[in-house]
């Protein structure tokens, strides 16, 4: 542990002296995609350290590579340069430790709500008995309020309910880190609001899943949910423009927050940061 701290640039260790080892360390990461004869650089020089218990948002314009970075953290896309270390080990492949919720739900349409969650639980929770796996599936579905819909197929559910299933599936495997790729982007504003609150409930209530990284387009969503907001510069060849700490106490109450000065300052700051 000590050599790694020494090897790193002194900036972070100065801010966070002698803190526990970070959960995720991204340093010097870049991503190139082949384009004909040459390569297109999507991301460059990404430096980011995420600690256990943090809620982080990635925000930026379309095509800035924030989703690519999330996919690289998931292990679904390879990195072109740099290193990405999760819990002391380099990320090489996808793992249920970093469970993911996709923008378009990615439920298996031919399986019922229950089966969609159970297949993931059954695949990952190999330490549990069959009865315990079933009980866990029932429990997470109850927590997202879908107990009365377990036998339905995804096509029979609204978008919000489908995303609840996907969130239940991700929480059910007890990931160390939950990755969300614009999870509420396809939902209407009212549904989005209630799902944001449910996500916070699940996150603060479930001690095993304490770290969340979410990609979003929505400034209010980022402020309401996050501890830190990572702002990306415009692509191609995007990088981190700044990291904003959201200094708002939890639990957060949306209504009182939205009229507070801190909220307005953050909002204005983010708007300016994203629009010039």
């Amino acid at each position: 542990m000590a050599p790694r701290l020494l090897a790193r640039t002194t900036v972070n260790s100065a801010i966070l002296p002698m803190e526990a080892a970070p959960l995720l360390e991204i340093s010097g990461v870049g991503k190139n995609y082949p384009s004909g004869q040459s390569q297109i650089n999507i991301l460059r020089d990404i430096e980011l350290t995420i600690h256990s218990g943090e809620f982080i948002s990635f925000i930026g314009h379309s095509g800035c590579g924030k989703s690519s970075l999330l996919n690289m953290i998931a292990g679904l896309t390879s990195i072109s340069t740099g290193t990405m270390v999760f819990d002391g080990k380099p990320i090489e492949a996808p793992s249920p430790e970093r469970a993911m919720v996709f923008q378009h739900y990615s439920l298996l349409p031919w399986l019922s709500v229950y089966q969609n969650v159970y297949e993931a639980v059954d695949s990952v929770q190999t330490d549990l008995s069959k009865a315990e796996r079933k009980a866990l599936t029932d429990a997470v579905l109850e927590r997202v309020g879908l107990s009365n819909h377990v036998h339905k197929k995804p096509m029979q559910l609204s978008g919000g309910m489908r995303q609840r299933v996907a969130i239940a599936r991700a929480f059910a495997v007890h990931p160390r880190m939950l990755l969300l790729d614009e999870p509420f982007g396809a939902l209407d504003a009212l549904t989005r609001g209630s799902l944001q609150e449910e996500l916070l409930d699940l996150w603060s209530g479930d001690a095993r899943t304490e770290t969340v990284v979410m990609v979003t387009h929505d400034i209010d969503e980022a402020i309401y949910l996050s501890d830190r907001i990572v702002v990306f510069s415009d692509g191609p060849s995007a990088t981190i423009k700044e990291v904003i700490t959201v200094d708002l106490p939890r639990p957060r109450d949306k209504q009182s927050l939205m009229t507070s000065q801190t909220w307005n300052n953050l909002r204005t700051h983010l708007l300016l940061s994203l629009h010039c």
């Binding site: 998931a74 292990g75 679904l76 492949a93 996808p94 793992s95 249920p96 970093r98 469970a99 993911m100 996709f102 378009h104 990615s106 298996l108 297949e119 993931a120 695949s123 990952v124 599936r169 495997v173």
Partner: peptide, 10 residues
């Protein structure tokens, strides 16, 4: 996406 799901949930 479905392939990704199968990989993430191993």
């Amino acid at each position: 996406d479905l392939k990704a799901v199968s990989k993430v949930f191993r």
